[in-house]
Design a protein around this nucleic acid. Structure first.
Lengths: 156, 156
DNA sequence: TTACCAGTTGAGAATCTTTGCAACTGACGT
DNA sequence: ACGTCAGTTGCAAAGATTCTCAACTGGTAA
């Protein structure tokens, strides 16, 4: 898998660095209260490699503290998404699934046949986005870029 | 509002041209059956300027044919979204709202304070997307780019 | 360490969206 | 025109997500 200067596969870095960002500190700095349910949910998200949906997160959470409610899971997912700490994916009508943002922003390429997600990042695209927003009179707070594709068929 | 070569505001074109794309023909060509409910829903979408949610579309639809069901509205919205004929927007937890794609693909800048949507298109960004997908071994089927921003504050 | 209070939670109701299935209907060939 | 059948539909039920509100609890300041 080759890397060029305009983008790189963040998934690679993720495993290479293998260190959890300190979300607690970050969130606190942003004025978010760190409660017991939130700490547990964040722990679950930072220590998994898959893309669980709300119900799955809920089940893992009540194993640690069975007083946590599903509402809180949903509320926390929305909060973390707004804070940019996690990303949400939705495949053909199914429930939303989440993954941590690994501290760094990145975009997604979704395989429409398998649902597999490849993470990548392009500074060039981000720069163009800034340009566009500026000329429309806006400052970008965050963005979402999802490419939906299918594996290239080589001469069959 | 100035236009440059890298992007243009599609919303402007929309009003300037003011002509409905012939979705029926397009969809038929793509192998989609044009049923009575679908025709009605498409008519509603192509003749409105706002961004109605499923319930609103449903109510407008049953005024024309009261046998149409809400499920069909939802199913049709999903179908049209997959076909690229409409776009879906979701603001802070509320129900999804839809708008026709005006035949041409375009991206969105969403004002996080007001929910206002500005449509734009950048060929440069699309080209970069193609490049990235190709080097990851994929062909892009469609994509979604949403910028979330806030009006730039000028020297106050 | 304590009291305070705005922000958060749990529980369940409400809302939004998808699904299963039997009945129905476009599109196509005759 | 007519029959056929895969694709659609309406309905009801299930599933997913948000909301309401009284009770609770982090963070802050005395």
């Amino acid at each position: 898998m080759q890397l060029t200067s305009i983008w790189r596969i963040v998934g690679v870095m993720k495993h290479a660095l293998n260190q959890k960002p300190n979300y607690e500190k970050e969130l606190r700095k942003a004025g978010v209260r760190i409660t017991r349910p939130r700490r547990i949910i964040i722990d679950i998200l930072t220590s998994t490699e898959d893309h669980p949906d709300a119900m799955k997160i809920f089940h893992r959470a009540i194993e640690i503290d069975d007083s946590i409610s599903l509402s809180t899971v949903y509320r926390t997912m929305n909060l973390l998404e707004e804070m940019g700490a996690i990303h949400r994916h939705a495949f053909n009508g199914g429930p939303s699934r989440f993954e941590q943002a690994h501290g760094e922003h990145h975009d997604h390429l979704i395989d429409i046949d398998t649902g597999a997600v490849v993470e990548f990042k392009s500074d060039k695209i981000e720069k163009l986005q800034e340009e566009i927003a500026k000329s429309l009179g806006y400052d970008i707070v965050h963005h979402r870029l999802e490419l939906y594709g299918r594996k290239t068929r080589h001469s069959s």
